[in-house]
Amino acid sequence: MDLIGLANYAVFIAILIGIYALLALGLNIQWGFTGLFNAGIAGFFAIGAYTSAILTSLPADHRLGGFELPLLVGWAASMLMAAAIAWPIGKICLRFRSDYLAIATIGVAEIIRLVIRTEGWLTGGVRGVTGVPRPFGDLPYMQSQLAYLALVVVLVLAAYLLVERQLRAPWGRMMRAIRDNENAAAAMGKRVAERRLQAFVFGSALMGLAGALFVHFNRSITPEAIDPMIATFLIWIMLILGGSGNNRGAILGAALIWIIWSVSELLTDRLPTEIAIQAKYVRVFIIGLTLQLVLRFRPEGILPERQYGTSLPRK
């Protein structure tokens, strides 16, 4: 690869890191601050992607859409849709231990995948949605990539600052209290179920926005674009490795894991075809193993959660 090619690749990776960082931040609100187990991240991501795609894309005769609405409307709608799906699920499942939420979110992701594949009039079925506009798409290739990267960075930064602010605010303290001792928090008069629902819906909306950013970057989306289990799992390992409960850790984890994941893909693609297919599954195995190792040897992640306003170590 020559220098230009390498620079292009680096920018491409950086944009995707930004998108994954948004997903990891969303998961951090749910898991890191509140202790909610969302195993259907890919579902909320897909909802966001398809919502924005359908609202902003060019008309096509085999599916709904072609409203050519402005980009910001698409993004807002993708967040709203993800939140609207999250709300009833959270409402039903958050009364119980997080295991139930995990089962239900796996189910939601499966149903969303089914709907996307089946309802061709809405999502284009296997052909997917194409002709999605891309901001700065008219510029020459490199400038356009850089401009999109800048856009993603601004959004990640905005999300980071907002979440950070919430974390330092009384709201964040209350959320940690609920996570660490639900009964004590309830005894102090905190509305545990309602607050959990809030965190679940906020986090899911952020995941929807990440989906929208992905679809405008790609200009199209098909049901095959995201492998639900692997995508969900990658984000989990990003957060756990980076440090759950720490926003900088979430972003760092997204960068680290995505670089390792893409570079290992580059390497395995060069193997002879017979081994290349098996190497693909070996990569998945290693990601699964990495989680086990992190859970065992460094459960707090690279950047552990910071302690606010207390010198007492948490148990």
């Binding site: 692997i230 195995f285 086990q292």
Partner: peptide
């Protein structure tokens, strides 16, 4: 906490 084992089991599923 048990939820950590739930997470580990998701990783085992993938493995």
């Amino acid at each position: 906490p048990k939820i950590v084992t739930v997470m580990a089991s998701l990783g085992v599923a993938l493995m």
